[in-house]
């Protein structure tokens, strides 16, 4: 563990010795896209947890709330009625 840390530190100094940094923005964009792909679906799930009513053509829920009765979405999905 300690070795790894030391190793990463030295890798770090190694990398920082690099003077040219044209790729900074490319990396930022990559990470932004990645974060969007990662958090988009999670946000969707979180919005559903506080949504009471959400239907087309509303982009966001038209009614918010925490009524537990409507929160069994996953269960509803799993139940292949009846």
């Amino acid at each position: 563990m300690r070795n790894t840390m030391k190793h990463q530190l030295s890798l770090l100094t190694l990398c920082q010795s690099n003077k040219i940094r044209p790729s900074f923005w490319i990396q930022c964009v990559f990470i932004l896209l990645f974060a969007f792909a990662l958090f988009g679906p999670i946000t969707n799930l979180l919005i559903w947890t506080v949504a009471e009513t959400w239907y087309f053509p509303h982009a966001l829920p038209s009614e918010w709330g925490l009524n537990i009765g409507t929160k069994s979405l996953i269960l509803t999905v799993m139940s292949q009625a009846p």
Binding site: T53, W54, Y55, F56, E63, T70, T76, A81, P82
Partner: peptide, 16 residues
């Protein structure tokens, strides 16, 4: 659709 699922979803505001 199944009629019961349909009405439950409608009650819960999950379909218009």
């Amino acid at each position: 659709v199944w009629v019961d699922m349909f009405y439950s979803w409608k009650d819960q505001g999950k379909i218009p």
